[in-house]
Design a binder for these strands. Structure first.
Lengths: 117, 117
DNA sequence: ATACTCGCTTCGGAAATCAAAGCGACAGCT
DNA sequence: AGCTGTCGCTTTGATTTCCGAAGCGAGTAT
């Protein structure tokens, strides 16, 4: 295969930072996961219930990704019983204002889905 | 089982608006596409070049989705030659500040990928 | 006439995501 | 001691999404 200049083109790219951000946020559930944790620490099962529709396997993947990226931290509380909780790191918390803004934007500009509650 | 019905949980769930937002933004390339258009109108080919890595088929899908959601508009300029350009609607423009904030966040909190340029 | 570019669409195959089941460790009954 | 349930995952196999490459019709350039 010819060495695509893919690598070279990467440089002059529009907004590199935005690209980096959406490597994480552009994946399904990442944003919502962070949003959920914005409300405070939570355990695995708690998150899987809070974020309706996500499967355990993907939730597990996302938690690993975001942990690796340094946005969330996994804390094991020695018991008994032993419990696991995930929480935002400082980096993660720094993103919350942006998510809030997106949330506010959605309220204003995204079709209101018949308030059933 | 406790009387916690799923229905109840649905209501008080995290943030419905954020969920709506990430139905769009949580898909690959959506965020970057909006970011690109934030710099001004652009044609299909222009976008496909600006957003490195996206395939024509997916770009086409995303443009359709975001157009349907009312974030971008497809304008056909009668020629000759006939040209097509996509641009942000007001709703779309309203999201740009949030994207900028995310971009700034990424610069601060996301691993600087060795400036190769 | 030949060879481009543009704005797509179509066609496989590869990757992401899904629901469901299972597992080990523990807790709460009885 | 059993039985049942919760928690934090992982595994399995099917479905959905995404990708790269090719193609197409229309127009432009040489």
């Amino acid at each position: 295969m010819a060495p695509t200049r893919h690598d070279l083109e990467n440089c002059a790219r529009g907004d590199a930072a935005l690209t980096r951000a959406f490597t994480l946020l552009g994946k399904r559930w990442s944003g919502l996961l962070l949003g959920s944790l914005g409300a405070g620490p939570a355990g695995f099962r708690e998150l899987s219930r809070a974020i309706d529709g996500v499967s355990d396997s993907v939730l597990s993947d996302r938690l690993a990704e975001l942990t690796k990226a340094g946005l969330i931290a996994r804390r094991v509380e020695e018991g008994p019983p032993v419990t696991v909780s995930y929480e935002l790191t400082e980096s993660g918390r720094a993103l919350i204002p942006a998510l809030d803004q997106i949330s506010r934007w959605a309220e204003e500009h995204l079709p209101a889905p018949d308030e059933l509650c």
